[in-house]
Nucleic acid binder design. Structure first.
Lengths: 202, 202
DNA sequence: CGTGACTTTGACCAGTTGGTCAAATCAGGA
DNA sequence: TCCTGATTTGACCAACTGGTCAAAGTCACG
């Protein structure tokens, strides 16, 4: 563990390689299923060397989760209260869907954590996450009150967007087993657009 | 391991207790996260005693998954080609939602397995599951062709039902963290009905 | 109540895993 | 080049975990 002066070139490179490898392994095996040795070999480093950069396996996991929550909520943050309601929501849906396509490992890391009761990020859910959702829900509520989108339970509306979009990353195996050759991400955007347009058009 | 004559009273009781305990532990911790000792103590038996009834930890897990897939698909099997299309679909949605409320452990067991790539039930997904879905999709397609429900991508329609309903079991912690006091299952059925009614009414 | 099959368990074992440590090696500024 | 701090690693541990086994206890039925 080097002193807390600015990180060297080597530190940056190795820390990044470790997190990249850890993301692969944790997202595929879950926290307990992952072993430090696996991560080390995936990162091309020795196990003691990993533990030189991160004090423990849990620290790697935490570093990933911390970085993740922010990225994960970005699409929702972009929802603009001053935009055209339906287009804003459809935009949010498509951004979220793209994240499932482009960052499936992150989605699964998150899913693993939540399914098992979110032991490590429970606080963040009740604080940051809840605060952001509450804020955006009040925007949705205003739009509904003004008759600019159809009235529906705003929290369930957001849950539905989360679950529908993340399903394609988290349950990827199942989706592909059922669909066969067809690429889910070719047809999903159209389906989503239809669904939310019909649901929300006043 | 007793002979293969009919199971005794004790065998029945203990096997059931073990599976019940295993469901608790596996659904909360995942396969690798669960330990045989945990399951044993939860079942009120000793570890060697568990391994007298099941040859290995994996055998317990398999026994659960096997029993699960059938139960899990029952609501979809009930979808009746001769019924009134919209009502049939809404009925399916509500049955699936009830399963999430009444059997959250089973839902999470399944989720854990799929998120990690379904290593143990991949075959069942491509066979039984795909066959059933294909069959029901052709029913949906007929309904759409006849103009009895609005045309949408039928596979995505089914995925959407799965993801929306299971979300309330699998991501329960997150849902409750955001909702606070409100019981999700009080308001979800209404939301779902609205959603699918608007999506599917021709 | 005796007997053979069924059940239970304490003690144990080998493999795995997270983590440590001292010694060796390397990088780069003076 | 030399020196100091940064980096790397082989060898090790202790704890945990899945699984074994022989011996002891219990059950049901003739």
């Amino acid at each position: 563990m080097p002193a807390d002066r600015p990180p060297t070139r080597i530190q940056k490179k190795n820390r990044a390689a470790i997190l990249e490898a850890a993301l692969n392994v944790f997202s595929a095996q879950g926290f307990r299923g992952a072993t430090v040795d696996q991560i080390a070999s995936e990162a091309g480093l020795s196990k003691p060397n990993l533990l030189y950069y991160f004090p423990s396996k849990e620290a790697m996991h935490n570093a990933l989760l911390e970085r993740l929550l922010d990225t994960w909520l970005d699409p929702l943050r972009e929802l603009d209260a001053d935009g055209e309601p339906l287009e804003e929501l459809l935009g949010y849906v498509q951004r979220k869907l793209q994240m499932s396509r482009d960052y499936p490992r992150e989605s699964r890391l998150f899913a693993n954590e939540i399914v098992q009761g979110a032991p490590r990020i429970h606080a963040a859910l009740s604080n940051e996450l809840k605060a952001l959702v509450d804020e955006k829900v009040s925007v949705l509520q205003d739009w509904m009150d003004q008759g600019r989108i159809a009235p529906v339970h705003p929290y369930h509306l957001i849950f539905s967007i989360w679950s529908l979009t993340q399903h394609y990353a988290d349950f990827d195996v199942q989706v592909r087993a059922v669909l066969g050759e067809e690429d889910p991400f070719a047809t999903a955007p159209g389906f989503m657009e239809t669904l939310y347009r019909r649901l929300l058009t006043p």
